[in-house]
Simulated assay, not measured.
Amino acid sequence: MKTESSGNLGMSAEALEKVASMFRVLGEWVRLSLLQELMSGEKTVGELVEASGQGQASVSKHLKLMYDAGLLSRRKEGVKVFYRLKDDMVFSLCQLVCGKLATDQKTREEIDFSI
């Protein structure tokens, strides 16, 4: 796709904004921790609150943002709401980033970036 401002190949400003929006969704550690919890499968909001140590309102806000971004799917069963990953793409991206951070950190060994 050509950019509007130049004849070079690349994404349009609109496409770049959509990519940036997805990175903003993924750019919060609480959301990443919730995604990490969902790696093992579907969980209720209550289970995610307990696992994350965050408040229910905070967890619900983050889950809604990720749901609206298309990262999660959800279903209701009675009064419980279950969330699960809609697409494993997020883990491929996280593995790329964590691999880069691990390589950069290799000599320091301060933080474990393995998933």
Rank of each mutant, 00 (worst) to 15 (best):
S33D: 07
V81F: 08
S114D: 09
L32K: 03
G41L: 01
K76M: 13
S5A: 14
A20N: 11
I111P: 06
E14W: 10
D68N: 09
S6G: 11
L72F: 00
S114R: 05
K106Y: 03
D87K: 02
Y67Q: 12
C94G: 03
S58Y: 11
S58M: 15
K64L: 12
A69C: 04
V49M: 04
K80N: 14
L32C: 01
S21E: 14
R24N: 10
L26V: 07
S114C: 02
L32V: 08
G10L: 02
S52D: 08
S52T: 08
C94Q: 07
S21D: 14
S52L: 00
Y67N: 07
V19L: 14
L72Y: 00
S33T: 03
E110N: 08
T107L: 10
H62E: 08
L16F: 10
E42C: 08
R31F: 02
R108S: 11
D112S: 07
V97Q: 04
S92G: 11
E37D: 12
S40T: 12
I115Y: 09
V59T: 00
K18P: 08
R24C: 08
S6C: 09
S12I: 03
E110G: 09
S60T: 13
A13V: 13
L65R: 04
M22L: 15
E77K: 15
A20F: 11
I111D: 00
E37G: 10
E14A: 15
M22I: 12
G78W: 05
V59C: 02
E110C: 06
S73Y: 09
A13I: 10
C94K: 07
C98W: 07
L65P: 07
K80I: 07
R74F: 05
A57W: 11
V19N: 02
D112R: 07
Q105C: 06
Q36G: 06
D88P: 02
S73I: 15
K2F: 12
S114L: 05
V30K: 01
L16M: 15
